[in-house]
Design a binder for these strands. Structure first.
Length: 372
DNA sequence: TAGGCCATCTGGTCCT
DNA sequence: AGGACCAGATGGCCTA
């Protein structure tokens, strides 16, 4: 047992030493290159590998491989042939049950190599997942490099965004309405709700809108207005955090073109939901794709990504490049335009969703509704 | 210091 | 046998 303590201490040292340079993978390489560690660790009989990992405070492929060795026949078989000695020197009964099969070293090595490779694949898989999530973040109505949305909040916001856009298209409701904001914020945590609210307001600056018009050929002056016109930062809601937080880049503002700036004269502005309601259930309404897609593929500045252009000025989804990865790959359609048509709900939204908080409702009450 | 978020390792399951 | 996917466990980092 002293030996494992020694190994544990050494591993912790390695962790400290290598911390500035990388993560566990780097440590594992170091450990593997050292080589001697396997011997130390494998001397412990019957150690569960996860226990060992926890106690060492380190996860390394090298160590993992070594623990497999220790749980196999390395020492166990020797003990089968001799009397077990307890901590006080007394004789312990022989281990019962079937004898463990001897595993040849070649196979142990193969298992270890397989595990190392599997770990690498898993890492890479998760990186791919995170990349996709980053792509999703970039097409969200608020994208901030400084305040990145968490994974779960990204997914929630994406769901809400699709839902809100769908509602805008289907009902003709204005995206500048408070309802649009509430849709976006439904089920989000308070910080994320504030972020979204702040982003939408930031986006209403003339500068932003000019950029937007340049990009999409919109009508000059259209969409500019509201109390924030001419101001870059103005946060009417006391609930909003201080900058810096999410900024709405012009490209993202395009998602809500027609959003004429804050018309949030409502007390609940920027506080769409109170707290972080456990709103994680399945989408309330069943979704059905209406199938009204038409798309034009253009060369994208981003390699490997298709771009999609929305049809006409004044459309809420004005011309903008949507990375295909974030769109999930739209089915083909007519040449010339892309109408990004979000899924349509089979039920009227008013019926399908538990109704939004009435305009007179205070945020805390809204939070109560959303948490249902 | 507790809690949230995250990266990583790991073993299990399913599929090819 | 090996790869993909998944969920649980663990520890690190950050923030309120």
């Amino acid at each position: 047992m002293p030996r494992i303590n020694c190994a544990t201490a050494t591993l912790k040292k390695i962790t400290m030493m290598t911390k500035p340079f990388g993560k566990a993978g780097d440590v594992s390489e170091l450990v593997s290159s050292l080589g001697w560690l396997d011997d130390d660790v494998s001397s412990v009989d019957g150690e569960d590998s996860s226990d060992m990992r926890g106690r060492c405070g380190l996860t390394t492929d090298g160590l993992e491989g070594s623990t497999e060795l220790c749980s196999d026949d390395m020492e166990e078989d020797e003990e089968d042939d001799q009397e077990m000695i307890g901590p006080n020197g007394e004789e312990l009964p022989k281990r019962r049950g079937p004898k463990r099969k001897k595993v040849p070293k070649v196979r142990q090595e193969r298992v270890r190599v397989r595990r190392v490779k599997a770990n690498a694949r898993e890492r890479s898989r998760m990186h791919g997942l995170n990349d996709a999530l980053d792509n999703l973040r970039r097409v969200m109505p608020c994208y901030s490099k400084t305040q990145k949305l968490s994974k779960i909040e990204t997914l929630r916001l994406a769901r809400n965004y699709i839902w809100a856009l769908s509602e805008v298209l289907d009902s003709g409701r204005s995206p500048e309405s408070l309802g649009f904001m509430e849709m976006l914020c439904k089920g989000l945590s308070q910080p994320t709700s504030n972020l979204v609210a702040g982003c939408l307001q930031l986006g209403a600056t003339p500068m932003m809108l000019n950029q937007m018009e340049d990009k999409c050929g919109g009508v000059p002056g259209a969409g500019v207005g509201g109390p924030q016109a001419g101001h870059h930062l103005s946060f009417p809601s006391p609930g909003l955090p201080s900058p810096p937080y999410g900024s709405l880049e012009a490209s993202h503002l395009l998602h809500v073109k027609g959003f004429k700036g804050p018309s949030y004269d409502h007390p609940s502005s920027g506080e769409c939901s109170g707290g972080s309601p456990p709103y994680d259930g399945p989408l309330t309404p069943p979704l059905s794709i209406s199938g009204q897609f038409s798309l034009k593929q253009e060369p994208s500045p981003i390699e490997g990504e298709r771009t999609y252009t929305a049809p006409h000025a004044g459309h809420y989804l004005s011309s903008h490049h949507y990375p295909a990865s974030a769109m999930g790959g739209l089915p083909g359609g007519q040449a010339g335009h892309v109408l990004f048509r979000p899924p349509r709900y089979e039920l009227p939204l008013e019926m399908a969703f538990d109704s939004f908080a009435p305009s007179h409702m205070v945020p805390s009450q809204m939070g109560a509704i959303y948490s249902e």
